[in-house]
């Protein structure tokens, strides 16, 4: 490393260095600051968008509660247009499915549930959507499709109990009582939803043999 003899030499050296590198230093600083502020602005924008979507979604929930299907559809459409790719998109599809079922539009409900599954921001939410879709298919009499869906989506874990309960319903609908019994028993043992009703179903099965 070079050692400077006098103050003048030092000043000269600094000036020379600045001439050579000043532009890149200033440029680097500018880029750095722009990146920091740009990032902050982007995060703020995202946050704002998410909050808007949240408020719109809460409003949709309230509307669905009133039972006004047309208003709910309009609000859902607007929400999907603006925030369709966010988590609220998938939740909106779930709400929409309920609206369509209540309005006796199973086809539309089915589409909504398929969308909810595809866009689910969380694997667990996809499972809930799948369960609802399977129940809808069963109500439509499409037992094969429902079974196929269940076979695809049932990957063990805590939701297995609820899938087992649906398998039981499907087996019973096809007259396979012994299978239904086994499925119900498994569902109850693993703590599926609405065990009280499942128990009634189990007790109401014709005797074996």
């Amino acid at each position: 490393m070079n050692v400077y003899e006098t103050d003048e030499e030092k000043v000269e050296a600094i000036k020379g260095w600045w001439k050579e590198n000043g532009l890149s230093v200033a440029g680097g600083l500018a880029i750095g600051l722009a990146a920091v502020f740009g990032w902050r602005a982007w995060v703020d924008h995202q946050e704002g968008q998410a909050q808007q979507a949240s408020a719109a979604f809460e409003q949709l929930v309230a509307t669905v509660e009133t039972g006004n299907a047309d208003a709910a559809r309009t609000q859902a459409r607007l929400l999907l247009e603006k925030h369709g790719d966010s988590a609220y998109g998938a939740l909106t599809q779930l709400m929409l499915a309920k609206v369509e079922i209540a309005a006796q539009q199973p086809q539309a409900a089915r589409q909504a549930l398929e969308q909810a599954m595809a866009k689910a921001p969380e694997p667990g939410l996809a499972k809930v959507a799948a369960l609802r879709l399977a129940r809808l298919l069963m109500a439509q009499g499409e037992r094969e499709a429902a079974l196929a869906l269940i076979a695809r989506e049932d990957q063990g874990g805590p939701f297995a109990a609820d899938f087992a309960a649906l398998r039981g319903d499907l087996a019973l609908a096809s007259g396979r009582v012994a299978e239904a019994r086994a499925d119900y028993e498994r569902a109850i043992a693993q703590g599926a939803a609405n065990t009280a009703l499942l128990r009634l179903k189990l007790e109401n099965l014709p005797p074996a043999g």
Partner: peptide, 26 residues
């Protein structure tokens, strides 16, 4: 929010309603 969303969006098909009433009010 997720809890409210799940409960508020839960659907009941006519078939399920019928089945439940058949059993419950048997």
């Amino acid at each position: 929010q997720i809890q409210r969303a799940l409960v508020a969006s839960e659907l009941v098909t006519e078939q399920e309603l019928t089945g439940a009433v058949h059993l419950d009010r048997q």
